[in-house]
Every structure is written in C-alpha cells, then in structure tokens.
Design a protein around this nucleic acid. Structure first.
Lengths: 317, 317
DNA sequence: CTGTCCAATATCTCTTGTCTATGGCGCCAT
DNA sequence: ATGGCGCCATAGACAAGAGATATTGGACAG
C-alpha cells in the first residue's frame, strides 16, 4: 500500500509544502507543472490520503500532508547521509576513526562501542588510544582525535556529549576486610577509610564533584593516595592503603571485592564525546545510533535496586 | 546523485541481503530474477557503490552494502509507520490521545508536549486530565489513559518511560524570610524548617526517595504538612508552616521566592510514560520524537550551575 | 469583459521497469 | 569427462508511467 510512496514523491511533497505553489515547486524541481500535478494526484489517490488542499489563495498541506512533508525532509536528509557514507566506505575513503578513552572506562563499554561502530561502518578502521581525559580533550580540540569515551561530566559548550552507559558506584575492599561480610555498606562506616582517589589533574571536574558530594553527605575524604588507573587503585586497596569508590563494571582482582553503598544510588556515567567542530563523516550516524541504543541499556539492569534509581552521580566511570 | 536510490531499491536490497540469493529474493518480491538483477546492477553503477559481491557460494553484501541493507529495513519501517499514521489522520480515525498529568508537572512542560503532539499530529484532538500519579498509572493499566506526563521515578517493567525534562530542585520560602537575603542555601541551615511535603500516597516511590535522600545528607525531615498540589504548598509556605522543595519551573506566588541549594544539584525529572501494552497509534512516533528532542533541552540551561550538574534526583516535578 | 494566475486535464513522447528467453559459469553426480 | 542443476547476467520485447506540450476551467483584479 505505502509502497507507492517513493523518495521522488517525498521530494515533490517537500517542495510543494515549502513553496505553497505547484508551479514554482515544479520549477524548482526542473519539472513541468502538469507532471508534478499528476504525480501528486496519482499518489493521493493511491495511498488514499489528501495531501494538499488547493485553494484560491495558494496550496496548503492538510493535516496528514503536514506530517508527510515534515517526514519527507527528514527522510531525504537521512538517505543522503547514508548514501554518502556508504560511498565513502566503498571507496575506502573513510578515515580512521580515532577514539580516545580513559582507562576508567570499562572494557565492556569500549567493546560495545567498537562493535556498534563496526556494525555501522563495516571494515572501517578504528584507532583507540587511552589517556587522561584532560589530555584527550586537548587532542580533540586540536583535531588529533575524532571522539572519545569518557567519564561524565564533561563541561563546556564546545563538546557534544552523548550518554552511553552508567553503572553503580561501589566500595572496593579486600575480600578479607571485615566490611566484606556485609551485603551493603553504610556511608557512615567508611569516612576515615576512604582514602584512595583518582588523580585530580586527569579529570578535574569529576574529581571535584566527587569530593563535593562526599562532603555533602558528611564525609571529608582524605585525598592522599592518588591513582592513575583502576589497577593502581586495586593495588592500593590490596596493600591496605584504604578503600576506594569504583565503577561496578570494573574487572576485579581476585583478592578484592565490592559492596554497594546502602541507600545511595550513585552511578558512574560514561559518555561519547566529540568536539562541536569535529568533521569525521561517521559522527552524525554514530551519534544517532547511540541515541537510539541508549534507551535499551537502562532496562537491562533495573532489577538491582529495590529503591527507584534516584541519585545519579555523573562521575568517573 | 543519491536521488537514484528509491524505496523500491531499498526493498530489493533488504530482500537480497536477507536471502543471500537473487533468485529467492526475486520470488519473495514477486519479481523476475532478471529484473531484480538489472535493478541492482543499474543502481550500483548509478551511485558508484558495489552493494553485493556475487560469489560461487552465494551473494554477500559488501561493507557499504551492509550499511545500506540495515538502513533499508529501518527506512521502510519508518515510512510505513508514517504513511499509516497519516492515513489515519486523514480519515479522522486518530482516537483522542488521552494524557494524564500530575499537577506537579509544570505548565511549560505540558505546553511543550502538547505543541510537539500537535505538530506531529495536526488537528488531532487531545484530552488532558490531571490527577495523582498512582491514579493515573491505574488508568493507564486499564486503558482509560493512553499516556501520562509524570514526575520520575516510575518503577516497573510494565511502563515505557521517556525522560523529557529536568529542572533544579530549589527551596521555596517567603520573600521576607531571612534566608531570602542569601543567594544559596546550605542544606545544614534548613533541616528543621523543611516541613512541607507532597502527599506520599500520590506518588509513593518519589516521596520515599526524597525522604531517603534527605536522610542520607543528614536531614530527618518532619513530614507533617502534606500538600496535594503546588498551590497547596505555596499557601503553606506563605502561611509560615515551613519551607518546601519545589521544581524551579513552578509558577510562583508573588509573596514567595526560591533559592538554590548550595552544592547540591538535585533535579526534578519529568517523563512521558505509557503502558507497554498501550495501543494508541501515535505512541511510537511520539516517543521517537521525544527521544530526538531530549538532547536539546539540557543544552539550553547548562550555564546556570558552575559545578557540573551532577547529582540527579529523579523526583517529583 | 478581459487579462492574469494557477491547477487540472488530455494527448503524446520517451524513459524505464519488468518480462521471457538465453547464455555463461561453477558445482556436483554419474 | 559430461550432463544436469543452480545461479546470476544479458538481450530484446513490451507495457507502465514519468514527463512535456498544449489546453481547459476557475478565481480574481482591473
């Protein structure tokens, strides 16, 4: 039924809707007015929808016609985008997609991202490079990276940020720690032992935010042990330098374990980020894909918290 | 250039990609094999993309072909959806969209939603009815409401929840309150005065969550004054029953004012919700639209907080 | 009443999508 | 080897249909 609707028709509809005039639309389409008229009339008959109302003072789209017209613009834009990208892929002209990532982003997220890109742009090469968020942002400013997967928050108007994952923030401890007996940890139990943090320079806003949040709930953390990677953190915990807050998804040393924070539902959120002026041809398609996918993930892990997932700390992933 | 690509071609590409065989794809399309072959070949020449690789043991899509094939499925689905909806609009067969809302959802959000629906489904009637979230959810279960605009969180697998807005949670006070002199309020300053809350029965999970969060930061609120609407709350504040936490977007009595909570970045989040088994034909299109729009809103109000927006309380809007 | 503007209609042309028939290629069973 | 089979490409015929030209008809302004 709707197979009668071709892109050609969408183009015609869009042109008529814009000009509100068959004759001028036909000119713009390099078409005779009569041809356009006939095409639309046949279509209207075929799909049983009056698209335009022809009046003394111009042509306007009916309600249904307005829907089709706005859809038309979007559909044509998307088609052109995809065809352009596909052609670039075919010619092998898709430049390597250079992605930066923080080592605090879990491998699973990187894998998911990489898989998504590969399914969208098969056989197109990627280059992943780890580093400090602040370094990575600089690289994106200078154009030596196309995008990045980073812990939130990322501040500034110059960044396009698309949230892609979030995982609970949990307390990391030795398996033989007395706290490991418990299912959950009360915040009030650990203020003095929470002493391991990530280097503030690497991602200042996230660090500041974490400290501030802890302060708000009455913990004044002793930020003395600084780690530059999850394995540093885990080594410190193993060596009894203190406890740490880590992303639940982090692959864990067998001597260590994690426990959720009672009541609190802080999450470590991860985003795909690119500079507003980034050029890579895959970015619009990639972002659109991530946007669609973003709604499914939250559904996968909702059973964990009995309480509504509520406080969200967009924090180091 | 990409004007050569018509929906017809997309249908062909999808069929071939699925069957991996021109002959069987042609059968499925009620088409002669030769026609299909020619169409694809002409298209490949026209847009300068090799879509399929013909081999001894079958037909595979090339990298670019895979992109086109997966795009094809999506594009055709969308077209059919829109045409179906447009036809329903044309015939006046779109049933009234019955939307429930909590009175704690700001009028601006309702207006935005209503505008969005009207632009997507011109001339299609809507019916808005206010009420308690718990009532509204029951109505959606029984099918007497198609969807609702409610404060988050909404729990349960039976609900489809699409986040549409979020606004900072602020302290509401009289203009002549001594606290009104300050730009921000420290949480520690108000524990005893925070005494006005929304009726727990109306939205139990949100209420529990708010109380729990306050407990976490050391406030044990005196939940004695219960209000069923923003104006009840404002009357209570004006009459010196205490302070209240309200959504920053709430239209305010001239005798009252609001101040942000220092450091905290709690937000009141609002979602569009519908039951998983809801039938209304506008829902898929509406949800898709809200999803696209959802990313623009956060960009509009980021300058307000100097600190990264961080803790998010999906709470009564 | 006439000229103008604009969409619809009629008729014709020419492109193109599809059909039937056929050819070529590789694979396998005999 | 060879003949049959499955599969895709090609060729020529044909019909559908997209588009062009010319014309009609309605609304409106002068």
């Amino acid at each position: 039924m709707s197979d009668l609707v071709e892109f050609r028709h969408l183009k015609y509809i869009a042109a008529i809707a814009e000009t509100a005039n068959f004759t001028r639309a036909a000119e713009r389409l390099f078409l005779a007015q009569s041809s356009l008229s006939k095409q639309i009339k046949d279509l209207e008959g075929g799909i049983a929808i009056d698209i335009f109302r022809r009046n003394r003072d111009g042509v306007y789209a009916t309600a249904a016609g307005q829907m089709l017209a706005s859809y038309a613009l979007e559909a044509i834009r998307m088609r052109d985008e995809i065809v352009k990208a596909a052609r670039a892929v075919h010619r092998g002209e898709v430049p390597v997609l250079r992605i930066g990532f923080s080592c605090f982003v879990s491998p699973k997220i990187l894998q998911t991202f990489s898989d998504a890109y590969t399914s969208l742009f098969p056989e197109c090469p990627t280059q992943f490079s780890g580093g400090d968020p602040s370094q990575i942002l600089r690289h994106m400013q200078t154009g030596t990276l196309d995008g990045a997967i980073l812990p939130m928050p990322i501040n500034g108007e110059e960044w396009v940020v698309e949230h892609i994952a979030s995982a609970p923030l949990v307390v990391c401890m030795r398996v033989d720690d007395s706290l490991a007996q418990r299912m959950q940890i009360q915040v009030s139990e650990i203020p003095k032992r929470l002493r391991i943090f990530r280097s503030p320079e690497a991602h200042p806003s996230a660090h500041n935010r974490l400290v501030e949040m802890l302060t708000e709930i009455g913990i004044h953390p002793d930020v003395s042990n600084l780690a530059a990677s999850p394995s540093d953190i885990q080594w410190m915990v193993r060596s009894k330098y203190g406890l740490a807050l880590i992303d639940q998804g982090t692959p864990l040393d067998p001597d260590l374990t994690t426990r959720p924070l009672a009541g609190l539902n802080w999450t470590a959120d991860t985003a795909f980020v690119h500079h507003v002026s980034a050029q890579h041809l895959a970015l619009p398609i990639l972002i659109r894909h991530l946007k669609k996918a973003s709604d499914r993930k939250p559904h996968k892990q909702p059973a964990r918290t009995k309480e509504p997932k509520a406080i969200q700390l967009e924090l180091l992933a």
